[in-house]
Protein backbone atom coordinates (compact mmCIF):
# COMPACT_ATOMS: atom_id res chain seq x y z
CA UNK A 1 0.00 0.00 0.00
CA UNK A 2 1.46 3.30 -1.06
CA UNK A 3 1.52 6.19 1.40
CA UNK A 4 -0.46 9.31 0.61
CA UNK A 5 0.87 12.75 1.46
CA UNK A 6 -1.59 15.50 0.72
CA UNK A 7 -0.63 18.67 -1.11
CA UNK A 8 -2.25 22.02 -0.26
CA UNK A 9 -3.05 20.78 3.26
CA UNK A 10 -4.98 23.31 5.33
CA UNK A 11 -6.16 25.29 2.32
CA UNK A 12 -9.59 25.94 0.93
CA UNK A 13 -10.49 25.91 -2.76
CA UNK A 14 -13.59 27.56 -4.18
CA UNK A 15 -15.07 27.69 -7.64
CA UNK A 16 -16.21 31.06 -8.90
CA UNK A 17 -18.69 30.90 -11.76
CA UNK A 18 -19.56 33.93 -13.83
CA UNK A 19 -22.72 33.95 -15.91
CA UNK A 20 -22.75 37.45 -17.29
CA UNK A 21 -23.18 38.99 -20.72
CA UNK A 22 -20.83 41.83 -19.80
CA UNK A 23 -17.81 40.16 -18.22
CA UNK A 24 -15.56 37.28 -19.27
CA UNK A 25 -13.67 34.97 -16.88
CA UNK A 26 -10.47 36.69 -18.08
CA UNK A 27 -11.71 40.13 -17.06
CA UNK A 28 -12.90 38.76 -13.74
CA UNK A 29 -9.48 37.21 -13.16
CA UNK A 30 -7.76 40.57 -13.73
CA UNK A 31 -9.97 42.24 -11.14
CA UNK A 32 -9.45 39.36 -8.72
CA UNK A 33 -5.64 39.45 -8.99
CA UNK A 34 -5.67 43.02 -7.64
CA UNK A 35 -7.18 41.79 -4.38
CA UNK A 36 -5.55 38.37 -4.24
CA UNK A 37 -3.34 38.81 -1.09
CA UNK A 38 -1.39 35.71 -1.97
CA UNK A 39 -4.46 33.61 -2.74
CA UNK A 40 -3.84 31.39 -5.76
CA UNK A 41 -6.14 32.31 -8.64
CA UNK A 42 -6.67 30.09 -11.65
CA UNK A 43 -8.77 31.15 -14.61
CA UNK A 44 -11.09 28.50 -16.07
CA UNK A 45 -13.63 28.32 -18.90
CA UNK A 46 -16.50 29.13 -16.51
CA UNK A 47 -14.76 31.56 -14.14
CA UNK A 48 -12.06 31.06 -11.55
CA UNK A 49 -10.73 28.71 -8.93
CA UNK A 50 -9.24 30.32 -5.87
CA UNK A 51 -7.09 28.48 -3.34
CA UNK A 52 -5.55 29.63 -0.09
CA UNK A 53 -5.94 29.94 3.64
CA UNK A 54 -9.65 30.04 4.58
CA UNK A 55 -9.86 33.64 5.86
CA UNK A 56 -7.93 35.06 2.92
CA UNK A 57 -10.13 33.16 0.49
CA UNK A 58 -13.25 34.48 2.22
CA UNK A 59 -11.99 38.06 1.99
CA UNK A 60 -11.17 37.63 -1.69
CA UNK A 61 -14.57 36.04 -2.39
CA UNK A 62 -16.26 39.06 -0.80
CA UNK A 63 -14.39 41.35 -3.19
CA UNK A 64 -15.09 39.13 -6.19
CA UNK A 65 -18.80 38.89 -5.40
CA UNK A 66 -19.04 42.68 -5.15
CA UNK A 67 -17.88 43.04 -8.75
CA UNK A 68 -21.17 41.68 -10.08
CA UNK A 69 -23.20 40.22 -7.22
CA UNK A 70 -26.12 38.91 -9.26
CA UNK A 71 -24.01 37.11 -11.85
CA UNK A 72 -21.19 35.61 -9.81
CA UNK A 73 -21.71 32.33 -7.99
CA UNK A 74 -19.38 30.57 -5.55
CA UNK A 75 -19.05 26.98 -4.42
CA UNK A 76 -16.61 24.90 -2.36
CA UNK A 77 -14.35 22.43 -4.10
CA UNK A 78 -12.82 19.35 -2.49
CA UNK A 79 -9.73 19.22 -4.70
CA UNK A 80 -7.02 21.82 -5.22
CA UNK A 81 -6.78 23.24 -8.75
CA UNK A 82 -5.03 21.20 -11.44
CA UNK A 83 -5.09 18.00 -9.41
CA UNK A 84 -4.12 15.12 -11.68
CA UNK A 85 -6.79 12.86 -10.15
CA UNK A 86 -9.56 15.11 -11.44
CA UNK A 87 -7.83 16.41 -14.57
CA UNK A 88 -9.71 15.82 -17.80
CA UNK A 89 -6.49 14.89 -19.58
CA UNK A 90 -5.79 12.05 -17.17
CA UNK A 91 -9.32 10.76 -16.78
CA UNK A 92 -9.91 10.72 -20.51
CA UNK A 93 -13.01 12.77 -19.91
CA UNK A 94 -14.69 15.23 -17.64
CA UNK A 95 -15.14 14.19 -14.03
CA UNK A 96 -18.81 13.51 -13.24
CA UNK A 97 -19.12 16.73 -11.22
CA UNK A 98 -18.53 18.78 -14.34
CA UNK A 99 -21.77 17.52 -15.88
CA UNK A 100 -23.59 18.46 -12.68
CA UNK A 101 -22.26 22.01 -13.06
CA UNK A 102 -23.47 21.98 -16.64
CA UNK A 103 -26.95 21.08 -15.37
CA UNK A 104 -27.10 23.99 -12.92
CA UNK A 105 -25.28 26.46 -15.17
CA UNK A 106 -28.35 26.43 -17.42
CA UNK A 107 -30.45 27.70 -14.52
CA UNK A 108 -28.17 30.47 -13.27
CA UNK A 109 -29.95 33.15 -15.29
CA UNK A 110 -33.16 32.40 -13.38
CA UNK A 111 -31.28 32.70 -10.10
CA UNK A 112 -29.73 35.98 -11.26
CA UNK A 113 -33.21 37.23 -12.02
CA UNK A 114 -34.33 36.16 -8.56
CA UNK A 115 -31.43 38.00 -6.93
CA UNK A 116 -32.16 41.19 -8.91
CA UNK A 117 -35.80 41.03 -7.91
CA UNK A 118 -34.85 40.50 -4.27
CA UNK A 119 -32.79 43.71 -4.25
CA UNK A 120 -35.51 45.67 -5.98
CA UNK A 121 -38.41 44.61 -3.79
CA UNK A 122 -36.49 44.25 -0.54
CA UNK A 123 -38.88 44.02 2.39
CA UNK A 124 -42.15 44.27 0.54
CA UNK A 125 -42.50 40.99 -1.33
CA UNK A 126 -45.47 38.75 -0.54
CA UNK A 127 -44.96 35.44 1.29
CA UNK A 128 -42.75 33.44 -1.12
CA UNK A 129 -44.15 30.21 -2.49
CA UNK A 130 -41.29 27.89 -3.36
CA UNK A 131 -41.58 26.26 -6.77
CA UNK A 132 -42.38 22.57 -6.87
CA UNK A 133 -45.12 22.29 -4.32
CA UNK A 134 -48.04 22.53 -6.68
CA UNK A 135 -49.61 19.06 -6.85
CA UNK A 136 -51.85 18.35 -9.79
CA UNK A 137 -55.35 17.69 -8.46
CA UNK A 138 -56.71 14.21 -9.10
CA UNK A 139 -59.69 13.88 -11.41
CA UNK A 140 -62.97 13.99 -9.54
CA UNK A 141 -64.72 10.61 -9.63
CA UNK A 142 -68.03 12.14 -10.75
CA UNK A 143 -66.28 13.96 -13.57
CA UNK A 144 -64.65 10.67 -14.64
CA UNK A 145 -68.04 8.98 -14.69
CA UNK A 146 -69.39 11.79 -16.92
CA UNK A 147 -66.46 11.40 -19.30
CA UNK A 148 -67.02 7.65 -19.54
CA UNK A 149 -70.71 8.21 -20.23
CA UNK A 150 -69.82 10.69 -22.98
CA UNK A 151 -67.63 8.08 -24.71
CA UNK A 152 -70.30 5.38 -24.72
CA UNK A 153 -72.44 5.21 -27.85
Amino acid sequence: MAEYTPGYAGTVTKYVFIESPSMTPGELALRAYEASEGVLIKETCFGLQVTGEADAVDRLIKVIRSIDPDHIFVKDRGFPPGDSRRCRANLGGARPGYLGHEREFRLLRYISRGLEELERGEGEEPEPVPPGHEKRPKLDIKRLQDLINLEEP
Binding site: Y110, G114, L115, P130, P131, G132, H133
Partner: peptide, 19 residues
Protein backbone atom coordinates in the same frame (compact mmCIF):
# COMPACT_ATOMS: atom_id res chain seq x y z
CA UNK B 1 -38.01 21.61 0.02
CA UNK B 2 -38.41 23.01 -3.46
CA UNK B 3 -37.86 22.32 -7.17
CA UNK B 4 -35.33 23.86 -9.54
CA UNK B 5 -36.71 26.98 -11.23
CA UNK B 6 -37.89 26.41 -14.79
CA UNK B 7 -38.27 30.06 -15.75
CA UNK B 8 -37.57 33.57 -14.49
CA UNK B 9 -40.74 33.80 -12.45
CA UNK B 10 -39.86 30.55 -10.66
CA UNK B 11 -36.32 31.86 -10.24
CA UNK B 12 -37.70 34.83 -8.34
CA UNK B 13 -39.79 32.57 -6.10
CA UNK B 14 -36.87 30.16 -5.61
CA UNK B 15 -34.47 32.84 -4.42
CA UNK B 16 -37.10 34.53 -2.25
CA UNK B 17 -38.04 31.25 -0.57
CA UNK B 18 -34.42 30.34 0.15
CA UNK B 19 -33.75 33.82 1.51
Amino acid sequence: ELDYPGDEEEGVRFVAAVR
